[in-house]
Amino acid sequence: MRVLSALIAGLMFGVGLAVSGMSDPAKVLNFLDIAGTWDPSLAFVMGGAVAVAFFGFRVLRGRSKPLFAESFAWPMARDIDRPLLTGAALFGLGWGLGGFCPGPALASLTLLAHGTFVFVPAMLLGMWGARRLREGPAQGSSSVSQ
């Protein structure tokens, strides 16, 4: 059931990206281009998603455990530290250059654009590098990242 619910969540997430237009980097870059061809659509995507998740999470906060797992893995980190800020800044730089963040990039693979086939492997390599930097070369993984 866990695998099935994860599959449904992934499908729904991907369809949401497609319906919202966020799998199109041009739309994302135009949202960021306030001084130019501004397209405010992304704010509506974020608004809709955050509103639904806010109320959904509030309901779930009152429950002791999820349907198919032992406990809720609510993120515990609260500190605003250097990795958070440098990481978010580097992510923003790449996002502004390519117009892709991780979800839309993966949900664009089947749309077969050349840029996606270059972006995604580079992204996976970058993720791998950041994990190695945090965990050291030969260790298992921690669970800090969201």
Binding site: F13, G16, V19, F44, M46, A53, P66, A73
Partner: peptide, 25 residues
């Protein structure tokens, strides 16, 4: 369309948390 897509993304995040207790990051 963007609001609708956003709502779907939000529902997906709630499903993953409600069913598996995981953040959809």
């Amino acid at each position: 369309a963007s609001l609708l897509g956003g709502v779907l993304i939000g529902i997906a995040a709630v499903i993953l948390m409600a069913a598996n207790g995981r953040i959809a990051g």
